[in-house]
Nucleic acid binder design. Structure first.
Lengths: 122, 122
DNA sequence: TATCATTATATTTTTTAAAATATAACGATA
DNA sequence: TATCGTTATATTTTAAAAAATATAATGATA
């Protein structure tokens, strides 16, 4: 039982069971909390550039994440255009929005699991 | 439903939901798969030095992990001695063994969850 | 056709993490 | 008291990751 574990640790420290979850394609991670946030910010700002800035991430790194995402998808999850009125911009596909919802649902289930395990230390 | 997500991704890519889990003390991670393996190898080899080598980890890093572990525990999880017949050595406490079992049980439950979610892509 | 902010990409620089190296202390034993 | 392999610790070096910088291309619009 968990009570034993709590006994082992210092009582003045607040314990939490935490974790992370992601999707792997052929064993390689390509979709997790980072990519999800990036997709959400691209949808919000209409620009990879601005989305990256909001995450304090270089454009190049953001671009790499997006590339990997698109490579794993049947059709591009991020639609880009260059030139034009505001120099271009980007948006995310309907499928990308489904991916975001999927992740949040998965993470919510996981969070419940984590909370349940953490509660055993109370 | 998950079938929708599978539709979005390339069919020639094998998907897996994967993740990691750890214990945080006051919001800082101190116990996870790495520390568990290190404890197991110290128990097996009787030496921090050899355990670190088996993990292709520098002694210094191993020592840092052990320090953090001990700081979070009511009593030291790794017992060390220097000098003597073989220069000294290390062992792990009964409590450390309980921590190892605890983590494996937790990880098993998590793995079941991950497998269940992965199975939805089949 | 000049301008604009963006995408796309390569190259350089910086930062961070890790590893490697070095040194001292340790204590049982020969 | 010399030796051993270890713990403990600081310092230096290396490697990896990230960021910064630079440049070209893009195309709607004024």
């Amino acid at each position: 039982m968990k009570k034993d574990i709590q006994r082992i640790l210092r009582k003045d420290i607040t314990l939490k069971v935490n974790g992370s979850m992601w999707l792997e394609g052929n064993g390689k991670r390509f979709f997790g909390p980072g990519p999800v946030e990036l997709l959400e910010l691209i949808a919000e700002t209409g620009s990879i550039n601005q989305a990256a800035k909001k995450m304090n991430m270089s454009y190049k790194k953001a671009w790499g994440i997006i590339n990997r995402l698109n490579e794993h998808a049947a059709s591009s999850l991020v639609l880009t255009s260059q030139g034009g009125e505001h120099g271009g911009g980007s948006s995310i596909s309907e499928e990308a929005k489904e991916m975001i919802i999927f992740y949040h649902e998965l993470r919510n289930k996981f969070s419940q699991f984590l909370d349940k395990e953490t509660a055993k230390f109370k």
